[in-house]
C-alpha cells in the first residue's frame, strides 16, 4: 500500500506529531487548572504551580463541596439543562418536520424558513431582549433562561436537511398504512434520525451548560445563578487600582486560586464526561445532511 512508501511514512509521522502538539495545547490548560486545584494556596498565589500539584491536598474540593453557592448553582444548571434540552428538542423536531416538506405540499414553507433565518443574521440587541423578558413576567424564573432561546434555528436547519434526505417512500408508505403526521414523525422520522438527534442534543446540552450571560442579566439574585454565571463572577478580573479597604478584605477572603480552580474543573467535568459518549454520533450527524443523492 501507499502507506509504506517513505515520503508517506514521513508525512504520517509529521502529521501525528503536529496534531499531537495541537491536542496537547488544548489539554495543558486543563491539567494546569487541575494541578493548581490540588496545590497549597500559598504555592498557587506565588505562581509556582505548573503541571504538577505542589503540596498535594484536597482542601479546596472539601471547601467547594461544603459551601452552598457552588452546589446551588449546579442545581440550577441541572434544572436548566433538563428543562431546556427537552423544550429545545421538542420544538426543533416539530418545527423541522413540516419545514422539510416540499413547497408543493407546504406552500408557505419558504416564508417560514426565511423568517427563522433572519433571526440568525439579525438580533434586536440586548435591551429589547431584556424588555421582552421583563414584560412577559418571566424575569428571575428558570423560564427566562429557556424561553428566549427555545427554538434553536441552526439546529432546526440541521435537522430539516436531515429529514429531507430520508427516503420519501417511507413516509408515503406510512401514510398509506394510515399514520398521521404525528405518528409519522415520532415513529418513522425520529428513530431514523437518531445520529442527527444525538448531535443536536449534544449541541443543546453544551449550549445550556456553557451559557452565563443570560443568567447574569435575567436572574434577580445570585442564589439563582446557573453554574457558569456563578463561575464568571468568581474569576472575573477585579479593578485593583481603585480598591477600598473593604474590597481588599474581600479579596483576601476570595482570592484563593486553588478554590477557583477546583470550581472551574468541577464545572467542566460533567461535559467532559458526556463528550466521549456522544461524539461518535457527532461526526456522522453533522455531515449526514450535507450530501444529496
Amino acid at each position: 500500500m501507499h502507506y509504506t512508501t517513505r515520503p508517506m511514512r514521513v508525512f504520517q509521522w509529521f502529521n501525528a506529531f503536529l496534531l499531537g502538539l495541537l491536542a496537547l495545547l488544548c489539554v495543558l490548560p486543563i491539567i494546569h487548572i487541575l494541578a493548581v486545584s490540588f496545590s497549597s494556596s500559598a504555592a498557587a498565589t506565588a505562581g509556582l504551580v505548573r503541571f504538577w500539584p505542589i503540596d498535594f491536598n484536597v482542601k479546596s474540593y472539601e471547601f467547594v463541596l461544603s459551601s452552598g453557592l457552588f452546589l446551588k448553582s449546579l442545581l440550577v444548571t441541572l434544572e436548566r439543562v433538563g428543562i431546556g434540552v427537552a423544550v429545545n428538542m421538542l420544538l426543533t423536531l416539530i418545527t423541522a418536520y413540516p419545514l422539510s416538506k416540499d413547497s408543493e405540499r407546504f406552500k408557505q414553507r419558504t416564508i417560514y424558513t426565511w423568517f427563522m433565518l433572519v433571526t440568525i443574521l439579525f438580533s434586536g440587541g440586548i435591551v429589547p431582549l431584556f424588555m421582552i423578558v421583563r414584560e412577559t413576567g418571566i424575569m428571575g424564573s428558570i423560564w427566562a433562561l429557556i424561553l428566549p432561546g427555545a427554538v434553536p434555528v441552526f439546529n432546526v436547519i440541521l435537522l430539516l436537511n436531515f429529514f429531507r434526505n430520508l427516503p420519501k417512500e417511507l413516509e408515503e408508505a406510512a401514510f398509506i398504512d394510515g399514520a398521521g403526521h404525528m405518528s409519522t414523525l415520532f415513529r418513522i422520522f425520529v428513530p431514523l434520525s437518531l445520529p442527527a438527534l444525538a448531535t443536536i442534543g449534544l449541541l443543546t446540552v453544551v449550549n445550556h451548560w456553557n451559557a452565563w450571560f443570560d443568567g447574569l442579566i435575567f436572574m434577580n439574585s445570585p442564589d439563582r445563578y446557573p453554574l457558569q454565571s456563578y463561575l464568571q463572577t468568581i474569576i472575573i478580573q477585579r479593578d485593583y487600582s481603585n480598591m477600598t479597604e473593604q474590597d481588599l478584605k474581600t479579596m483576601q477572603l476570595i482570592s484563593d486560586r486553588t478554590i477557583k480552580s477546583a470550581q472551574i474543573f468541577l464545572g467542566a467535568l460533567p461535559i467532559l464526561l458526556l463528550y466521549p459518549f456522544l461524539q461518535k454520533y457527532f461526526v456522522t450527524g453533522i455531515t449526514l445532511g450535507s450530501v444529496k443523492e
Binding site: 428571575g140 447574569l216 434577580n220 439574585s221 445570585p222 463572577t233 472575573i236 477585579r238
Partner: peptide
C-alpha cells in the same frame, strides 16, 4: 427588585 454580584 433584584440583586447582582458586585462585579456585574
Amino acid at each position: 427588585l433584584w440583586s447582582v454580584d458586585a462585579t456585574q
